[in-house]
Simulated scan of single mutants.
Amino acid sequence: MPSQTFWAATPPAATGPDPAQLAREAVDKMLLKGPDVNSPKPAPPNGCGKSAKPPAGFGCYTVGVPVWMSLGTSDTTWGPNTASATAGGTTVTATAKVSKVVWTMGDGSTVTCTTPGTPYKASYGTRKSPDCGHQYTQTSQNKKGGTFAVSATSTWDIDWNGGGQQGQLVETRTSQVQVDITELQVVS
C-alpha cells in the first residue's frame, strides 16, 4: 500500500504526560510551608503588661527599639527543596527556594527581606538588624487583644525541567504571630 501524507489545520492532540502538570505534582511532594518565625517572638497569652521581663519563650517589644526579624531555615521553610514526578516514562524535576519574605508588621508597615534574617543576640544592644528589621513608632495597646498581628509571606521560586521542557512556577506561603509593643515606662 502506498504511503500517504495528511496535513491538518491544527496539530494532533499531544500524547503522553504533560510536563507542566508533572512539575505541579513534584511541587506538591515538597510540602512547602510558611516561614518558621524565630523573631519577633509571640506575645505572652496575657500580653506584656508591666512585666519587666517577658515569660520564657515569649517576646515583648518597646516602641523605638529595633525589632530583628529572623526565620528558621529547612528544606520545607526556606529551601532549596527538590522533588520529581514521573508518568509514562517522563520525569520532571522541580527545585524550589525562597526568593523573598514580605513581613506585614500590623502597624501599616511592610518590610521585604531577601534573606532569612539575622538572629538577635543581647550583645547587639539596640543596633538595627543588618538585613531584616523594623522599628515600631506606636504601641499595640489599642489593637484587638493588645497586640499587632504580624504576618510573614514567603515567595517560593520554582524551576522545573523534564520531558523536553522547562519552566518556572511561583508559590506563596504565610505564617502569623502576635506581638506586643509597649512604651518604655520610666519610674522616678
Rank of each mutant, 00 (worst) to 15 (best):
L31G: 15
L31Y: 14
K33H: 13
G34F: 10
P35G: 13
P35N: 06
D36K: 13
V37A: 03
N38P: 02
N38L: 15
N38D: 12
S39T: 15
P40D: 04
P42D: 06
A43M: 08
G49F: 03
K50R: 11
K50Y: 12
S51I: 08
A52D: 13
K53H: 15
P54T: 10
P55M: 10
C60L: 07
Y61A: 10
T62G: 10
G64N: 13
G64M: 09
V65W: 01
W68H: 07
W68K: 08
S70W: 05
L71G: 02
L71V: 05
G72V: 04
D75I: 06
W78I: 10
P80F: 06
P80T: 02
N81P: 10
A83Q: 12
S84N: 01
S84Q: 08
A85P: 06
A85W: 03
T86P: 09
T86L: 01
G88Q: 01
G89C: 05
T90L: 07
T91I: 03
T95D: 02
T95P: 07
A96W: 07
K97W: 04
K97C: 09
K97A: 15
K97M: 09
S99D: 13
S99L: 10
M105Q: 05
M105H: 08
G106C: 11
G108V: 12
G108R: 03
S109A: 15
T110G: 14
T110Q: 14
V111G: 06
V111T: 09
T112E: 13
T112P: 12
C113M: 09
C113A: 13
T115D: 06
P116R: 04
P116L: 06
G117Q: 06
Y120G: 09
A122G: 14
G125D: 00
T126N: 08
T126D: 10
R127W: 00
K128S: 14
K128Q: 08
D131F: 03
G133E: 00
Q135D: 05
Y136V: 01
Q138K: 14
Q138E: 10
T139V: 11
T139Y: 03
T139M: 00
S140F: 04
K143A: 15
K143I: 00
K144H: 12
K144T: 15
G145S: 10
G145F: 08
T147N: 06
F148R: 01
V150D: 01
A152I: 06
A152R: 03
A152C: 07
T155E: 10
T155Y: 02
T155W: 03
W156C: 02
D159S: 14
W160A: 12
Q168M: 14
L169T: 15
T172L: 05
R173M: 11
R173Y: 01
R173K: 15
T174F: 09
T174I: 11
